[in-house]
Design a binder for these strands. Structure first.
Length: 621
RNA sequence: GCCCCGGUAGCUCAGCCUGGUAGAGCACUGGCUUGGUAAGCCAUGGGCCGCGGGUUCAAAGCCCGCCCGGGGCUCCA
């Protein structure tokens, strides 16, 4: 395919008479289009629809750069001596028109197969005239950079912003009184203008390194981190906790592949509806993409399931380690935004919208419980609800029910049209030290994918129907949860308070410091006792002063530090330095164990995956 | 992707502007020290100063190119 691309002040054409055996219907009148990008297009032998689509994509990019408002596709046979047959050529031209429409370009198209009178006025800048040449090879090479439609559409998306209150008010953001809701205001401004110059680096990055949680891995692709023992432990506990909660709520846990064939028909559509860039892996003559959510695997399972209305609602759950999104390199930050991340993802198949609404309420409750269980309070999170205008008009009460459940004013974004596959989504957002927001928990009502994947259930009448699908991550990405915990801890440092992890997540919960080496035996004994009641304990047996060991325990944010010496040996009562209160407290071993059991309550426990003796423990960095 | 900043010991960084052949603290190793609630003392070892080219008698430093990393912008379903 050869295209002469011209940036024109105007183009005028007038169909005179049909010239080819294949021609389109056309009016014999003069057409004039101003301020346009004109594509004089010759379709050659071997060209296919993909080439046409690619050409339109390139043109669209050019138009965006130069702010050219409209496109004219003009069949022009005189650029090649190797023309395709008229039938084939028309097919490719139609693909171009469809593509332009799909991309919501203002596009005009001259009729194929006519002898036309043509006059044009080309602009005088250096980029105004260009020859483009496409062969099947160009598409094969370039297609790795395929940009999903949704990414392009997103840029055109128009939103209206409101605050919804638990009392049922709808207030345009500009008119809302944010007194007492300062965090929501920061969040709303962040979402709406999405730009803010901040120079400092986010505090959680140096914390994640210093606390030996995670670190960048220069030998991998950026945004793929390495996890040290303490980080792995914390992450693993969070993973187990979310999974446990989802299963309590009736989730059915499955596991699915991490890579999928890009040419699989059902996946193809979803790839385009979902604004994310993929990692692509060529294997022999096929291309696979790494999953960027659990959706694919679960939908493919659901498609094969024998589902009756009696089974619904049904929840399918997977915790993806990992999901991959090839975010642009400049967007990656610490644990906040990664290219490989761990995402709990629970889908619900529902028979109709009413059932979907009921399920969504349960899942909101689940998400609230999970966030609270992890250690986030209501003040730490701001809720956003986004929906189409249609959905709002027919389900207003439901939306306010969600707001009431959350119990605080909520940021609402309304779209005039449905651009994505869902009609409503909500998220919890965390506002960090840079006053930037990151989404954690989320749920969506998907009205499109059941059809796209051929997922059906049988209703009372024995007919097949498409279910509504909900997509929920009760915690959001696990890495991002840790980011939020670290950012929250940093806020404490800023207030001159002692930062710490929730006790159930602290790698070492109790550090025992023998006053001198003579008490090491006793310390080990004490450690054994505490371990028997599921407490993570270690012993600082290094040849250092007590002060030094305490300082090190403090910088590790250890919640309970026990100094053990003559006094404790005699009395049998421990001196415990309690981080939360900053006080020294006397208590017996059993009381200490009980305090920790109480703090962990119903949440998972894992043993400390490190040498128990500090003298045997290497530093990771 | 664009803009900015950076790459010197395991880590954090100084030195670079104004060229003269490599520094500190912490960590590591050895020794002294048996210490009671946030850093005990001494000593030792450790460096292709990101890579390649250029200028110069001489380059960690100046110039050019490249690679890698980070931050900001944009984006964030």
């Amino acid at each position: 395919m050869k295209i002469v691309q011209l940036h024109v002040d105007y183009v005028e054409y007038e169909p005179v008479r049909p010239e080819s055996s294949v021609y389109e219907e056309a009016e014999r009148k003069k057409h004039r289009i101003e301020e346009a990008l004109l594509l004089l297009t010759s379709v050659e032998k071997g060209d296919d629809r993909r080439l046409g689509e690619k050409a339109v994509e390139d043109a669209a990019e050019f138009m965006k750069e130069l702010k050219i408002p409209r496109l004219v596709i003009y069949p022009y046979a005189h650029l090649s001596t190797n023309l395709a047959s008229p039938g084939e050529a028309l097919e490719v031209l139609k693909a171009m028109r469809e593509k332009a429409e799909e991309m919501r370009l203002e596009a005009y198209s001259a009729p194929f197969g006519w002898n036309k009178k043509l006059s044009i006025s080309v602009k005088g800048h250096p980029l105004a005239e260009q020859l483009r040449s496409y062969t099947p090879e160009t598409v094969r090479e370039k297609s790795e950079e395929e940009v999903p439609q949704a990414l392009l559409m997103e840029e055109k998306l128009e939103s209206y912003w409101y605050i919804l209150t638990p009392d049922g008010e709808v207030v345009p953001v500009e008119q809302f009184d944010f007194k007492g809701h300062e965090n929501l205001e920061v969040f709303a401004r962040y979402e709406m203008q999405k730009s803010r110059a901040v120079l400092e680096q986010p505090p959680h990055v140096s914390l994640m390194k210093r606390l030996e949680i995670a670190d960048y891995e220069p030998a991998s692709d950026p945004g793929n981190l390495r996890w040290y023992a303490k980080g792995r432990l914390i992450k693993s506990l969070l993973e187990q906790y979310v999974t446990q909660k989802v299963i309590e709520y009736g989730g059915i846990e499955v596991e699915t592949p991490i890579m999928y064939d890009m040419s699989h028909p059902a996946l193809k559509k979803y790839l385009h509806k979902f604004p994310a860039r993929q990692y692509v892996i060529p294997v022999e003559d096929k291309k696979y993409f790494l999953r960027f959510a659990a959706c694919f695997g679960q939908f493919l399972i659901a498609k094969d399931m024998q589902l009756s209305y009696k089974h619904l609602p049904i929840w399918l759950y997977e915790l993806t380690r990992y999901s991959f999104r090839r975010e642009k390199s400049g967007e990656l930050v610490g644990l906040k935004r990664l290219r490989a991340f761990t995402m709990p993802d629970v889908h619900a198949l529902c028979r109709d919208i009413e059932q979907a609404k009921e399920e969504m309420k349960k899942r909101l409750r689940l998400s609230m419980e999970v966030m609270e269980g992890i250690g986030f309070g209501r003040d730490d999170l701001e809720m956003a609800i986004r929906f189409t205008k249609d959905f709002y008009e027919s389900h207003r009460d439901f939306i306010f029910e969600l707001v009431r459940m959350f119990g605080k004013p909520v940021l609402a974004e309304m779209w005039n049209e449905r651009y994505f596959y869902f009609v409503l989504k909500w998220e919890f957002n965390f506002v960090d030290n840079q006053r930037k927001a990151a989404a954690l928990s989320t749920d969506q009502i998907d009205v499109e994918n059941a059809r796209a994947y051929g997922i059906t259930y049988v209703n009372e009448k024995g007919e097949k129907e498409y279910p509504i699908i909900l997509h929920c991550s009760p915690s959001g990405a696990i890495e991002r949860v840790i980011y939020a915990l670290l950012e929250k801890a940093y806020m404490k440092i800023e207030k001159n308070e002692k930062p710490m992890f929730p006790i159930w997540l602290s790698p070492t919960q109790v550090r025992i410091i023998p006053v001198k080496s003579d008490y090491l035996e006793d310390a080990l004994e004490l450690m054994k006792k505490l371990e028997e009641s599921d407490v993570r304990v270690d012993v600082d047996d290094r040849d250092e002063t007590v002060e030094r060991k305490i300082r090190d325990a403090e910088t590790e944010w250890i919640p309970y530090v026990v100094v053990y010496g003559e006094r404790e040996k005699k009395s049998g009562v421990l001196s415990v330095r309690v981080r939360e209160t900053g006080k020294l407290e006397k208590m017996r071993v059993e009381e200490l164990a009980e305090k920790i059991r109480e703090a962990v309550k119903n949440r998972p426990f894992k043993k400390l995956p490190l040498p128990k003796l500090l003298s045997r423990r290497p530093s990771f960095r």
